[in-house]
Design a protein around this nucleic acid. Structure first.
Lengths: 134, 134
DNA sequence: ATTGTAATGTTATAATATAACATTTATGTT
DNA sequence: AACATAAATGTTATATTATAACATTACAAT
């Protein structure tokens, strides 16, 4: 039984590669444009690769921006939930880790008789670099 | 100086009205379809009304679903940040309130030397009704 | 080998959202 | 009231994001 990331297909590897080498989240059509020289010709090829990568937790979607980012954490457990710090100045994204968020949100949900399953959290503000510059 | 909601224009009132009378979040084109009899003919008229309503805090956008919901809280301070419980079974949405979220997220951000400004939080799971049914 | 599952390639189209620009309405100021 | 100006409107066109449908190919498991 190999790691999921070792079983990636050509298209999936191509898409993951460009995301892992990007300092920022990328949009699907940006990815498409950037990898057309590698034989990917249609949006669907990109979206299908993204779907798979998201499913196995190697990529997360940033909903408010319709963009995609590679996960930097080995064996990331964020297959379902995600938590990001998003810089409004430079668009850089940092993923929050630690399951204290999970337990905190579970409690918040319980107060409303709501059965927590997963979450998306996007925190906006200024990253360390941009704080210093401004 | 009247409340912002008293100054709404015809299109804005029309869009807000349909959202306030909906038990679920609505998509922009659903709104458009439903109010064409009231003289609104183009997507842009809907999006412009939504933009304004979001700006004054009467409507929030649910990013992961591209849908919009009227805020039920008088004088809602969620002009920028939003926190939702979203039922995966029936698609109902409840807005979390209380600024304990604000302080919690500020602290989480600080740990990463990140200057918190606002957030979007979407918690998915089962609402009370759907818990009982399943 | 064969069978089932997943991934691919391709074309077309659906769904979501904004650009550009001319016009009208509302608001505030003299 | 007359004017200036800021906001909202109406309209057409287009940009952006994402999925449907279907035929084909790769590949792993019995």
């Amino acid at each position: 039984m190999a790691l999921a990331s070792e079983n990636l297909t050509k298209n999936q590897k191509t898409v993951l590669d460009i995301l892992e080498n990007s300092s920022e989240p990328l949009k699907a059509y940006t990815i498409l444009f950037d990898i057309q020289k590698k034989g990917i010709k249609s949006p669907l090829q990109v979206y299908r690769a993204l779907d798979k990568l998201i499913e196995i937790g190697k990529v997360h979607k940033i909903e408010s921006r319709n963009s995609y980012v590679a996960c930097k954490h080995d064996g990331c457990n964020a297959k379902t939930s995600t938590s990001f710090l998003i810089c409004e100045n430079c668009d850089s994204v940092t993923e929050l880790t630690g399951n204290n968020l999970f337990s905190y949100f579970s409690k918040q949900a319980e107060k409303n008789n709501f059965n927590y399953k997963k979450h998306n959290l996007e925190i906006f503000g200024l990253c360390e670099n941009c704080k210093l510059k401004n």
